[in-house]
Design a protein around this nucleic acid. Structure first.
Lengths: 220, 220
DNA sequence: TGTACATCAGTGAACGCGCGTTCACTGATGTAC
DNA sequence: TGTACATCAGTGAACGCGCGTTCACTGATGTAC
């Protein structure tokens, strides 16, 4: 019926895990839920039934690994943050300490490439989870979920600017504040880019570099 | 059952419009749908039935004014953009041409206040609408919806920076590019602020001013 | 002034759907003796 | 080596729900004559 790769259920039925390997299904669930999210862009489409269909299991099987749908979503978010931080770590780990400017640019470009490559996942990671009280229909952004993970990624940015300032390559006197501004700008760029694609955007790499220079107060 | 103001349906039944005033229901639908969106933060919660419940009409009555649910959502978006642009126009219209810097700051602060006051609406305005082909489950950001409206709001920013540059208050040589950077930063600030409220944010007004100065290349 | 009638602004019941979740179950896999 | 049995990794049917949408309808409001 559908020709797109993911939303059509897997044809074959998944073979049952051997004893003691039940946790493999958990990993499959998170991976499939993530793919589904990336393909559809909407968390509401990542239902227990849809995930089960694509894996080739019965829907109730998910309950062995997650208490409910929200827990599954949270697992997707957690795994996504791990991916993001891994990529940032990998990108900045390769650069020598003697080149903090290059390292900072690299980090920011990597951040943006992640958001560019996986826009729907990125939006989900930083999107607001509405948590509604039982029986109530009103929702407030939960906020603070994964604050730890976010702060860890953010610290990379602060360290980058600090390193530049230490070597006289940046005029920043408040790296934390400047890093905040830079993060904010990268976030906005990532989201607006894939939300208003028809806008006459400047060349992307150049725009990132410009933001890094301006907000990181890099010397010309 | 619920104590929150909106999600509990209106108690009384709405009195029928007089003849020739059927369009008043349309306005009520858009207003109620907008309120519902702002209260819940999730477009999925803005269902035909929920809107009808709160107005005090039967759900099928909506079909006299909108062909389907998506059309209702689009009307909410359109009305939201009108609100935003009205506020921006009002804010900048009051400042004299001799003070372009103040005008630019005012415009940006107004933009951000809108996003701060109505975060769920703002996120919806600039959020991606996924349009799925019939029968298919995959979604791509529609993009380009309301590009006109967006460009009109954006032009205010470009004009602001140009005016500053004309009077030697900004070092910008490419107002369009600089306005893009500024818009991106404002957007990111608006979204991150209400999505990660636990982050130790700098004072908001100051942060906006800093972004305007840096990205608008204002002279100290 | 009276009255038949068109139309406007809706209503109420019903449909089929996919969803989250529950429940009792099943059958292969490994283990104790 | 054989076998009873516990447990692991799930299954299949069913529930109640809210949803978008359809359909035939209704009753007040205004209008033509």
């Amino acid at each position: 019926v559908s020709t797109s790769p993911l939303p059509s259920p897997a044809p074959a039925r998944r073979s049952r895990n051997r004893r003691g390997e039940g946790d493999r299904l958990r990993a499959d669930i998170v991976a499939t839920a993530t793919e589904l999210l990336e393909a559809t862009g909407s968390p509401e489409a990542v239902t227990l039934r849809a995930v089960a269909r694509h894996i080739g299991i019965a829907a109730p099987s998910i309950y062995a690994h997650f208490p409910d749908r929200d827990a599954m979503h949270e697992a997707v978010r957690d795994a996504g943050f791990v991916d993001l931080i891994d990529q940032l770590d990998a990108a900045t780990a390769g650069t020598p300490e003697s080149e903090p400017v290059r390292s900072l640019h690299l980090g920011c470009r990597t951040y943006l490439r992640f958001a560019e490559d996986r826009p729907n996942l990125y939006r989900f990671l930083f999107g607001p989870e509405v948590k509604a009280g039982p029986g109530t229909a009103d929702g407030q952004p939960a906020g603070g979920h994964d604050l730890e993970s976010g702060l860890r990624a953010f610290q990379i940015l602060v360290d980058g600017i600090t390193a530049c300032a230490d070597q006289g390559r940046s005029a920043s006197t408040e790296p934390w504040t400047d890093a905040t501004n830079l993060w904010v700008a990268l976030h906005g760029l990532a989201l607006l880019h894939d939300c208003v694609p028809l806008f006459p955007w400047p060349e992307r790499g150049e725009q990132v570099d410009q933001l890094v220079r301006s907000l990181g107060r890099l010397q010309p």
